[in-house]
Nucleic acid binder design. Structure first.
Length: 996
DNA sequence: GAGCACTGC
């Protein structure tokens, strides 16, 4: 029985259809079941109008302009009111009976087990969680929840360190070093190393660190600090005969740099990776020996190590590299280490940053001594907008003055006015120098001169290429993919850049790695390489042969608007640091030239550095980290940072974490919060995979969770957007879900990968999927399974395990679990227009579907409810990924649906919020209420006593009943009967109220 | 009539 899973095919809307046609989950969808499901989506719902023809404008004659809009708005309002009136969630009597059979069991010890104690506010944690049986979990949980950082450190320090003095080992390590140094390979490398500016500072660094616990090393790229500093320290310790107690860790912001630096350093030491040098990044590691070694890891990995080793007792030196980038993780560690260091007097900390803001870090660490290493790059000549206009004779489009609508004109004039105040004095200054002709100065006065002009870039590239005798690659920085595509097309369409003489490469993160790598190709003779890139070419991808840089001065940045609780992505002016970095890209092999497409006066107004990431993002995960590391109250710790986030931002995240039941009212971790904090996921996605384990459908849900927490595997092919969309839709199988489409893609990829041949590869090509991304997603799924297995929610660590996937083919269930994780991220479809799908979120905010969503081109939906992960404001507010879900999925996702039921005679209303209100037949409501309560109790019990579900017991029956309800609910939009037409079909007219 | 900077556990 327990192996027989009831997929969608096992039920009809009129209750159970007795059939032997159960599916065993086998890790992929067979063609047979796929075909049936496709039919199932439509054929079983004769009452749903999938395509409603609409018969042209039908408003009364004589109405004009806004009146027409108002007419349709009223009409729609009336229609909505009627709809609310007629839609009543109802289960078919036979379904009701089935559910009752499953859950109405005689009172058993099982039910008593669920009777959780009511505990008051003032009880201690121990008594609050008394009902949790003694277990490994309880011990761990209580120690986390009751400890403080100091107690924790105390306890950690009492434990033995792996770094134990061993004199024989010290001598052995010293001998080994001497042996290595004698090798020709080592000597050859040393010739190169000695030329690095960092090498001259070797003794200074060692001296400074011997008399200080913390030092700061500042230096620009090319000075060699990343590869040399760790080696200086390691060699010094080995030579002093302290090899056995030396374990150096060096953090890097990116995975690639951790690996490549480790490889480079191993080569310089004539050693293999895994001896004196290693690396450790998520899902990939070559560990060095635990003594006499240096390990390069990503910053986020060090944060993970801190969970197991809070006093960092297994390390002797911590080197934090590239801290000027101000990532959330490095800011977090810098803050935490400040508290740890006094308790670990022998631990040495080396901070490494670029020069521009190094002082700030030194100041934060009580004016720790700073050592500067000069950089080494070739000189780069700089030109600004005024020079570029002079060189190219470029003219901006005349500024259009709006005449239609006064409001707009005023705005425009006001903008011009501020611009005039900004640029005016600078133009007068330029006038005095007499360096620029009047026509250039006139151009600078045009406010358009501060907007991105692809035409200007185009002309500038032409200008560079028209010069005689100036070979070398051109690197162009543009803010986004759209701009890159536009320039690329323009260049291809013109006759100035024939492919016989120019290799033009777009470069951004959303293209397949294989295409990214093409930018390293050395062009044929007499051919010039031109790379059009996003800021990916600023730090992540280094192209050595660049001689010319065109810097448009803008970059896209995400921000978090605390005021509206909204993520944004806008094109902004870059910072001084970015400008410097971009310029530096031109001088790596010889002297170069950098063209800035902004005035010198604008450059002077740039911020020194971009805003730290901590101030630009939600703090949900950061706060969970604070909690799992027992650092104390979130606001206190975050206030001790170099740049503390706003109190309101902290409050927003605390509120969400309480809503998720991850934190209690006193800001302590709940058992659920404890599990979520340990998972390498944001709390919502974490909740999703825990639910998936309970409901035995881990494979598809893990795929979805991995994708949401990493990145979309569908890339955007140039000029094939429409084909790509169709392929994605094909994978979506009529499920109206980006998440299901991704799960299908990953499942097929995994299946093909396990077979001989290159099926997976051709599948990726055919469906515009990134092989690299899918591979990583697949590895992440295994990691999730390992975590959940360790937590005891899974019996083994195989994401394809049969017993953990008995319901994986039930798409209604998978969608409901996605919804449970993402809740309350729900939007309601209000209409389909030729400009896209119009929705409102539960906060009554108007949003559109992003073009990347599978649902963007849908013309009708089986349900008006869409759950989403990412909502972001750019040119409008967009939902990027959506899944259409039934009311029942929402009702089970809502943690407080039970308290939201009000009944009147045989009608009940379940009100999840002002926008989410459901009429429900009272018998059905009663059953739902009962089921939801049982689910809550079951979940709480499982969270408190981690274990797998026994599908042969009552808990199995409860879950089975819920799955049954979700399945019939999804087939017919919550109405398990033919009597109610709940089809939701939108035409363009119905959206008119949203259009004006 | 238009659209997703870059990282990381």
């Amino acid at each position: 029985m327990s192996h027989k899973h009831r997929g969608k095919g096992a039920y009809s809307k009129h209750g159970r259809r007795e059939t032997d046609d159960f599916h065993l989950y086998e890790g992929s969808t067979s063609d047979k079941s796929r075909g049936r499901k496709d039919r199932g989506a439509k054929d079983r719902s004769p009452h749903r109008k999938d395509k409603q023809s609409h018969s042209g404008p039908s408003h009364p004659p004589g109405l004009k302009g806004k009146e027409i809009g108002l007419y349709y708005r009223d009409k729609q309002k009336a229609k909505n009111a009627r709809k609310d009136d007629t839609v009543t969630l109802k289960l078919h009597p036979s379904t009701e009976r089935q559910i009752k059979d499953l859950i109405d069991v005689p009172k058993s010890s099982y039910d008593k087990h669920f009777n959780l104690k009511d505990v008051g506010d003032d009880t201690s944690f121990e008594s609050r969680y008394n009902h949790i049986n003694e277990s490994q979990f309880k011990k761990k949980f209580l120690s986390i929840i009751t400890g403080t950082l100091n107690e924790n450190l105390e306890k950690a320090l009492a434990e033995k360190s792996k770094l134990v003095r061993n004199e024989r080992l010290d001598i052995q390590l010293l001998d080994e070093l001497a042996e290595q140094q004698a090798q020709p390979r080592y000597k050859k490398m040393m010739e190169f190393r000695m030329k690095l500016p960092a090498y001259e500072k070797k003794q200074d660094i060692i001296n400074l660190l011997s008399s200080n616990q913390v030092i700061l090393i500042s230096g620009e790229t090319g000075c060699g600090k990343t590869t040399q500093v760790a080696q200086f320290l390691l060699d010094y310790e080995l030579e002093c005969g302290r090899g056995s107690t030396t374990n150096i860790i060096c953090t890097q912001p990116r995975r690639i740099s951790a690996v490549s630096v480790a490889e480079r350093v191993a080569a310089e030491r004539a050693d293999r990776l895994g001896n004196s040098v290693g690396y450790h990044i998520r899902l990939e590691r070559k560990l060095a020996r635990p003594y006499g070694s240096v390990t390069f890891c990503t910053t986020a990995m060090l944060l993970q190590f801190l969970q197991m080793d809070p006093a960092l007792k297994n390390y002797s030196h911590i080197i934090l590299d590239e801290i000027h980038e101000r990532s959330t993780q490095s800011d977090f560690i810098i803050t935490l280490l400040k508290q740890i260091l006094p308790r670990r007097p022998t631990l040495k900390l080396i901070l490494m940053s670029a020069t521009l803001n190094s002082e700030q870090f030194s100041k934060y660490y009580d004016k720790c001594p700073t050592l500067h290493i000069p950089g080494f790059t070739y000189p780069v000549e700089e030109y600004y907008l005024e020079d570029v206009l002079h060189l190219t004779n470029f003219k901006f489009e005349e500024n259009i003055v709006y005449t239609n609508g006064k409001k707009r004109m005023k705005k425009q004039e006001a903008a011009n006015d501020t611009f005039e105040k900004f640029i005016g004095p600078y133009i007068r200054q330029l006038q005095h120098t007499k360096k620029y002709p009047q026509r250039v100065l006139d151009q600078l006065k045009n406010p358009k001169s501060e907007e991105l002009s692809i035409d200007l870039v185009f002309e500038l590239v032409r200008h560079i290429c028209s010069q005689k005798n100036n070979p070398g690659a051109i690197l162009i920085f543009l803010p986004g993919v759209m701009d890159i595509t536009k320039l690329h097309r323009q260049m291809q369409d013109s006759h100035f850049f024939p492919s016989s003489r120019y290799d033009i490469y777009p470069l951004h993160s959303r293209m397949p790695t294989i295409d990214q790598k093409r930018v390293f190709q050395v062009p044929r003779n007499e051919v010039r390489k031109i790379i059009i890139a996003t800021s990916i070419a600023e730090t992540s991808i280094t192209i050595e042969d660049v001689v010319y840089v065109i810097d448009c001065g803008r970059t896209k940045l995400t921000n978090f608007q605390v005021k509206n609780n909204l993520d944004t992505l806008d094109s902004e002016w870059i910072s001084e640091a970015n400008a410097l970095q971009r310029k530096g890209r031109a001088g790596r092999v010889k002297a170069g030239i950098c063209y800035h497409l902004y005035t010198k006066c604008r450059a002077a107004a740039f911020d020194k550095y971009p805003l730290p990431e901590m101030l630009r993002t939600r703090l949900d995960e950061v706060i969970l980290q604070v909690k799992i590391l027992q650092i104390g109250k979130a606001d206190r710790f975050l206030a001790s940072m170099m740049d503390p986030p706003e109190a309101k931002a902290i409050d927003l995240s605390l509120k969400l974490l309480r809503e998720l039941n991850a934190l209690d009212e006193k800001e302590n971790l709940t058992p659920l919060g404890y599990h979520l904090a340990r998972l390498p996921l944001d709390p919502r996605t974490g909740k999703m995979i825990i639910w998936a384990a309970m409901f035995s459908c881990i494979d598809p849900v893990f795929s979805i969770a991995a994708s949401l927490s990493f990145k979309d595997a569908f890339y955007c092919p140039m000029n094939k957007e429409e084909e790509a969309r169709k392929k994605k839709l094909e994978l979506g199988q009529n499920q109206y879900s980006d998440h299901i489409a991704l799960a299908e893609a990953l499942s097929t990829y995994e299946e093909l990968s396990s077979q001989p041949g290159n099926g997976a590869y051709s599948f990726c090509r055919k469906y515009f999927l990134s092989w690299n991304t899918l591979k990583l997603l697949s590895d992440m799924k295994q990691q999730f399974a390992r975590y959940l297995c360790e937590m005891k929610f899974l019996a083994n660590s195989n994401p394809k395990d049969g017993s953990a996937n008995t319901n994986s083919l039930n798409k209604s269930l998978v969608k409901a679990i996605v919804c449970a994780g993402l809740y309350p991220n729900v939007a309601i479809v209000k209409g389909v227009t030729k400009n896209g799908i119009r929705c409102v979120t539960t906060e009554e905010e108007k949003v559109k579907l992003h073009i990347s969503s599978i649902n963007d081109k849908a013309r009708s939906f089986p349900s008006p409810y869409l759950t989403y992960y990412l909502k972001r404001k750019s040119t409008g507010i967009f939902l990027f990924d959506t899944t259409c879900v039934s009311p029942w999925a929402l009702l089970f996702a809502s943690p407080n649906a039970n308290g939201a039921i009000s009944s009147k005679s045989n009608k009940s209303i379940i009100k999840l919020g002002p926008m989410l209100q459901f009429n429900c037949e009272s018998g059905t409501a009663h059953i739902f209420q009962k089921l939801h309560k049982k689910l809550d109790a079951l979940l709480e019990n499982k969270i408190n006593h981690p274990g797998t579900i026994d599908w042969n017991s009552n808990e199995g029956n409860i879950l089975r009943a819920i799955i049954l309800l979700l399945s019939v609910g999804d087939e017919n939009m919550g109405v398990d009967s033919g009597r109610y037409d709940y089809s939701v079909t939108y035409d363009e007219n119905s959206a008119s109220d949203l259009d004006d």
